[in-house]
Design a protein around this nucleic acid. Structure first.
Length: 220
DNA sequence: AGATGATCATCT
DNA sequence: AGATGATCATCT
């Protein structure tokens, strides 16, 4: 699909997806629907990217760079409950001390998000239904929560404490592994300021955060 | 049962 | 290798 020229065009296109199944969208794009979700974890997100005309590629920038809008699908189980945490971006282990909240990748990605709820009640990808998409600017109070978590993580990482950070930390943002498997290593900074090799990590939004966002708009 | 740590597919 | 898209599966 071509790139939407402005925000209004993107929203219009996104709203057309409401109520449709992933199978219908895939057929429209002449794409096969994977049978096994375990081996197609990112398929839904990539399908929605294609139908909305998000710029392909794996760059560390929002999906619609000219609009500054990030696209996120949000899995919703029965009763309107967010069923998974939301990956935001990789943790830049070696450059964390150079960033401020406002210059961070996390802020760039979350300032404007087009949330696309996916009803995952059906176990088969084909029959899963798209909810009503929601374009959302980051409210000030949510930003304050994210900024606080981010700044605490930034300090720990700058002090070389990345290997002591667990998913238990952070009230709305958390850091968890982000790799094909647990033996993968990337460059980081150790406790003595020395270069180390450590597991790549990502920033994730806790469920409570995304649940709150959709609860503002949908009665459950 | 829910959350944490681990993992899967694809692209550049 | 490192980024994107995420969900799985084990542990508590």
């Amino acid at each position: 699909m071509n790139i939407p020229e402005d925000e209004a065009a993107l929203i219009k296109r996104a709203l057309c997806l409401a109520g449709r199944t992933l199978g219908e969208i895939a057929q429209e794009l002449h794409l096969p629907v994977p049978k096994n979700i375990t081996h197609a974890k990112g398929w839904t997100g990539q399908l929605i990217e294609k139908i909305l005309g998000a710029s392909a590629g794996s760059l560390a920038e929002p999906d619609f760079p000219h609009l500054g809008i990030e696209l996120k699908t949000l899995p919703i189980s029965s009763m309107g409950v967010v069923s998974e945490t939301t990956y935001v971006c990789i943790v830049p282990l070696s450059e964390m001390n150079q960033a401020t909240w406002k210059t961070s990748i996390v802020y760039a990605k979350l300032a404007h998000v087009l949330w696309v709820p996916i009803d995952i009640t059906s176990p088969t990808l084909f029959h899963r239904r798209i909810g009503t998409p929601l374009l959302c600017d980051l409210p000030e109070n949510d930003e304050a929560l994210l900024q606080k978590d981010w700044e605490e993580f930034a300090e720990l990482i700058s002090l070389g404490k990345i290997e002591s950070i667990t998913a238990h930390q952070g009230t709305v943002l958390q850091i968890r592994p982000k790799a094909a498997h647990s033996r993968i290593k990337t460059a980081g900074i150790g406790p003595l300021g020395e270069p180390i090799q450590t597991l790549p990590r990502g920033f994730y939004l806790r469920k409570c955060f995304t649940q709150k966002i959709i609860k503002r708009y949908f009665v459950v």
